[in-house]
Amino acid sequence: MKKDFMFTSESVTEGHPDKLCDQISDAIVDRFLQQDPYARIITECAVSTGIIFIAARFQSNTNNVDFTNVARQVIEKVGYDKKEFNAKTCSILTSLKELSPSKYHLFDEKTLSDEEIEKITVNNQVTVFGFACNQTYSLMPLPIWLAHKLARQISEVRSQQILPYLTPDGKTQIGVEYKNHRPYRIHSITVIASQNKPSKPEFQQLQDDIRETVIYPVFKDEDVKPDAQTRIFINPDGPFIRGGPAAHSGLTGRKNAIDTYGEYSKHSGSALSGKDPIRIDRVGAYIARYAAKNIVAAKLADECEIQLSYSIGLSRPVSVQVETFGTGKIADEEITTLLEKHFDFRLAGIIKQFNLRHLPSLTKGGFYRKLSAYGHVGRMDIELPWEKVDKVDVF
């Protein structure tokens, strides 16, 4: 295992077109599940200059979801209000298909016996990954943790009118140097912030403002801070004017690395947003993170990657693999045995343990939409069931 290296991860704000699409898709999932916890909904979104396209396939006992209204609410909340793109004047096209009635998903997981859980199989195939490491208190890799913090801070100074000239679109990237496989120093910081007009403020003022209100506050309480040699790039290509869908298009599910571990670890090729909890390619990623995090929290390893492979027609993963990259206190095979004994990786078992169908109704403002920006894992601002470390005793 390489010990000395440099690794970069990126994040984007909620106004990035891809993230805007993720939020619209997950807001629609929330709305369906709030009305009918047993609804099936798969939805994708694409956005470009002045136009949004929503494709959805759904089955529900209620059909009161106004897709266009949900989209406009998200656009307004994200903060797009200029003439190039805003909630009132953008065109929204939809392609909606109501699925034929099926009893497959109409089970109440709270009342199922173990035998009944075993009979509920997955209906799509996927290999998902979960990861955890002890680089941060959230047990996430430091590069993606810092990239998310920077992106969130850009949105914060915009929404609080500290830098009112910023628009919702922004990007961040953090390069971290590792020494003996531990974060050693900050190699580089890149921030791309979109502004409304090229002359207000002047470019140098923008750079100074970003340093003072975004970069410095983010690193204030971090153990690894920028040093005199850290390379800081703020809009290195010059002013980024307006940004958003007026500048570049967006698509649901195009930011999988940002949604997970910043490519420090593997991630599935399947999108996480826009899917109800019956989709194992979404909820399988959550249970894999839960397993990996509990292993690291139990100090069985400094790093842990879990791989779960699911096949159509089976309830359990056909393969459970553990990789601790040489940091495990016991053999990876022994950890795998403990996982299979104490963790339920079956679809209905995951839905039951995490209460995934009912969280949109129990969470103010919806649940899944909050995951669609700044990561589905490693979140400390939302109480996520897969971020709990309540299984450490089994190890």
Rank of each mutant, 00 (worst) to 15 (best):
F395Y: 09
I24L: 09
Q161G: 08
K220V: 03
F67A: 01
C45V: 15
P164Y: 12
F129W: 02
F345G: 01
Q153F: 06
D108C: 10
I335R: 08
H248S: 15
G50H: 14
I162V: 12
I52W: 05
I92T: 12
Q173V: 01
L359R: 15
E383N: 14
I54W: 14
E323H: 11
V29P: 05
K299F: 07
A247V: 07
G238H: 09
S91K: 10
T213W: 15
V29K: 02
T260V: 01
T8H: 00
F53E: 11
S138V: 06
R158E: 15
N355K: 10
A271E: 09
R31G: 01
M6C: 07
W145A: 03
K391T: 04
G365K: 03
D390F: 07
K329E: 15
T127G: 06
S194G: 06
A292N: 02
I144V: 09
N61L: 08
R379A: 05
A292F: 01
G262A: 02
E109A: 04
E387N: 01
E116I: 10
I117H: 07
H181Q: 13
C45R: 05
D381I: 05
H181G: 12
F53Q: 09
D281A: 02
A193F: 11
P141T: 08
E202S: 14
Y80T: 05
Y374Q: 08
H267W: 05
D36V: 01
W145K: 04
V65H: 06
A246Q: 15
Q23E: 13
D332L: 06
W386N: 02
T213N: 14
N134L: 03
V12N: 06
T62C: 04
T68P: 05
Q161Y: 04
I54V: 11
P198C: 12
H342E: 14
D18I: 11
F325S: 05
G250M: 05
R357T: 04
I295M: 02
E303W: 11
S270I: 03
A46I: 06
I144N: 01
S361I: 06
A297N: 10
S319M: 11
R379M: 05
I54F: 10
D344R: 02
K83S: 10
G378Y: 01
R158T: 14
E44D: 13
K275C: 07
K88F: 07
G238S: 14
I24N: 12
C90N: 15
G50N: 12
S102D: 13
F367S: 07
L251Y: 13
W145I: 02
F67P: 00
K225A: 05
E303I: 04
K225N: 03
T337M: 09
A56M: 07
K352H: 03
I241T: 13
I241F: 13
S273C: 04
F7R: 00
A27R: 13
A298P: 12
A55D: 14
L314Y: 06
A55F: 10
I42G: 11
V128S: 00
D22P: 08
I24D: 11
G130K: 02
K88R: 13
R31A: 13
T121L: 00
R357H: 11
S60A: 10
P143W: 02
V214Y: 13
F240M: 13
V389Y: 01
K266C: 00
T337S: 07
H358G: 10
K19N: 08
S11V: 00
S91D: 15
P183K: 10
V74G: 02
L300I: 04
S155M: 03
E84N: 10
C90T: 15
N180Q: 14
T89Q: 15
S48N: 14
T89R: 10
G244Q: 12
A147K: 03
